[in-house]
Nucleic acid binder design. Structure first.
Lengths: 207, 207
DNA sequence: GTTGAAGTTGAATTCAAATTCAACAATAAT
DNA sequence: ATTATTGTTGAATTTGAATTCAACTTCAAC
């Protein structure tokens, strides 16, 4: 029901009423119950559909070579940035729904972090000197994967005016975030020749 | 009203009812309105009090020298980790309330990021080669400050069983997160002699 | 063109929670 | 001791939204 998407966009998850949806769709209130048990189910279906859509994009973009970590991270952030930039209303709703519902939160987190799972798997081969156990690596990657999450929310959903002073293309934002995560992970800069927008990051170093 | 804290802890912000609170406090329903306009105001006051308390701790711990960035970051995370570990219910509630209410979200974010503001201010002196404008630096620091946020939520609030396999003291968690953020910021490891729990991070490097 | 299944309506009903309030209790002020 | 102020009660009322449902419409099948 795309009427639901428009309402979610406008009023958010917690303010949404059944009447809002049926009215937006131009049908009678009672009809709602032919299609959905309650609002929660509707929202669940709407968000699921969107998450599935995001994941579809995701599959398409898997052509990056396995060892090229910077470009993998970049691809990860390009997807994140795109869904934030193009569906800010849905993303806000996902955030609201997640804050409430642990089951949904888990589902969303998995979908989001799936692209980083490979990193957890191959960690021992990438960093052979490192004796961390798998759960420790998971913890590490989860810690790092927070890079940019709030920023994307503030920039694309809240449209924070201070941050908005910086005009960044989606590509540039993704590259910056990938570069920051890369530094956290490898303790060094990404290869300079792969930077298209964030060359300045190379100058962020203690002299 | 500490009854409110217990209810928030138990049922969360959106499930909380006025009756829950008055019953928990052992008083009549109507009495609620002598003290508060509505639930939102109550929650607002409860959370405000806690945020103020967190900030008080925060002031006490300011004895770290200005140039010692790793220990500043560590102090920042020690406070974050402590409030998550010791007040998981409140933190969950803050997350829920933030997701809904942009005004509160802004207030919380400010309180959380205040300790990193210094970094934004002195950025041009720490990184003299870097020509980023103030809003760009703000964006950068916001991006990095996400390190560990979700992890703390999953570890201390949701108590994710996978992550819980790793037993970490509050100090150790803070040190790990500080080290990760440090790497993102400086593209190098923190000084080895300052590491008390996270020496292993030095081994996370490409050979 | 008759039948029945599925879709559609919106007023009526139910429901849960918020809110009010008149009466009562405790305490302090004079 | 009297009065005033403030705290407290919980049943009664109000509110606003969820939910039901009997009647109506479409439309495809035979």
């Amino acid at each position: 029901m795309d009427a639901a998407v428009r309402v979610l966009d406008r009023v958010g998850f917690h303010q949404m009423r059944i009447k809002d949806v049926t009215h937006e769709a131009g049908v009678a209130t009672g009809l709602f119950y032919h299609y959905f048990k309650d609002l929660r189910q509707l929202v669940d279906e709407v968000l699921d559909a969107h998450i599935a859509e995001f994941e579809a994009v995701d599959v398409i973009e898997r052509e990056v070579s396995k060892g090229d970590w910077f470009n993998r991270l970049r691809a990860h952030y390009e997807i994140c940035v795109r869904v934030h930039a193009e569906h800010p209303g849905i993303m806000r709703c996902i955030a609201q729904f997640s804050a409430d519902d642990p089951v949904f939160r888990e589902r969303w987190k998995r979908s989001f972090n799936r692209r980083l799972d490979l990193l957890v798997e191959v960690f021992p081969y990438v960093f052979p000197d490192c004796r961390l156990s798998t759960p420790e690596v998971e913890l590490l990657v989860h810690g790092l994967s927070g890079v940019g999450k709030e920023l994307m929310a503030e920039y694309y959903i809240d449209r924070d005016p201070v941050l908005r002073q910086v005009e960044l293309s989606q590509e540039a934002m993704a590259e910056w975030l990938a570069a920051l995560l890369y530094r956290g992970l490898f303790a060094c800069n990404p290869p300079a020749e792969q930077l298209r927008h964030a060359q300045q990051i190379l100058t962020i170093r203690r002299n």
